[in-house]
Design a protein around this nucleic acid. Sequence first.
DNA 1: TTGTGTGCAAAAGCTTTGCATGTTG
DNA 2: CAACATGCAAAGCTTTTGCACACAA
Lengths: 159, 159
Amino acid sequence: MPEYTNKERIVKEVLNIFSSHLETNNLRKTPERFAILEEIYSRDDHFDAEALYIHMKNQNYRVSRATVYNTLELLVTCDLVKKHQFGKNLAQYEKSYGYKQHDHLICVDCGKVLEFCDPRIQQIKTMMGELLKFKVTHHSLNLYGQCDGACPKTVQKLN
Amino acid sequence: MPEYTNKERIVKEVLNIFSSHLETNNLRKTPERFAILEEIYSRDDHFDAEALYIHMKNQNYRVSRATVYNTLELLVTCDLVKKHQFGKNLAQYEKSYGYKQHDHLICVDCGKVLEFCDPRIQQIKTMMGELLKFKVTHHSLNLYGQCDGACPKTVQKLN
DNA sequence: TTGTGTGCAAAAGCTTTGCATGTTG
DNA sequence: CAACATGCAAAGCTTTTGCACACAA
């Protein structure tokens, strides 16, 4: 199955999930909310709230920052979007539906973000939850370092 | 060896390390810098920059926020203090010298922070560094969840 | 029609910066 | 004495809030 078809299918599923979530919680189905969700799922990689706002603006959507933040929070609540802090005072977001759980490796020189999976994280979560009597619901693991050689140290410095 | 003696010894060592670091990097040994370091090592747990500033003020030190932030950065650079982001846009700090590397378990209801160690993290860092051609220098692992029963949900909510 | 959601702008909260003054080396 | 660090206040940036209007249900 070609990639773009898969993407379209995911967008459709995601819109349905969001729609149900809004219904269930007696929240309104506004065009802004769906537009923001579509915009998020049309892009790859990580983004911050301002970048998303600018993208919406550039495509001539009439949205406000307030609505962007509000909708992002809704989407995080129903697990369609994940929120991260990569060591800066700036929240980063990424779509999460249809993507396997993963963690991040961040280059402190150029800001590049790589993703990886390791089953040992799940083991640690389970064990520590039992040991310390916590119901662990989610986690965040970031590895920081320097990427191989050709990394432009001047671009988008993270630290 | 009694605990307080150990603490005094650590403070002494830490002051020496900081002093050397300042010398090596041609930075000035100002009373403010040493006062801030002493204050940090006299306290336990995690704190933010504002809390530290208030503490200094309450003890009638004449310091400014700018100096607090500046010194915290110096201390992070020479590994005497660690900086964290526990899912909020507010940096949290903790002293790090003489304490074994650890990660954090955070209660999203009451903000309580527990610490734990797991050797598997080191393995993951090493393996992923090799696999993805990164020189991994440090990491941050936070587990989020709910602490057992008696947690006051109204106090200092983290999310 | 009713009340929630929105846009806009102002406010809030954490952190950084500019400038005149003080102090280290 | 020269350069760097400090205090103070203002500015910067991300995020939140207040308010009047719009629109979903």
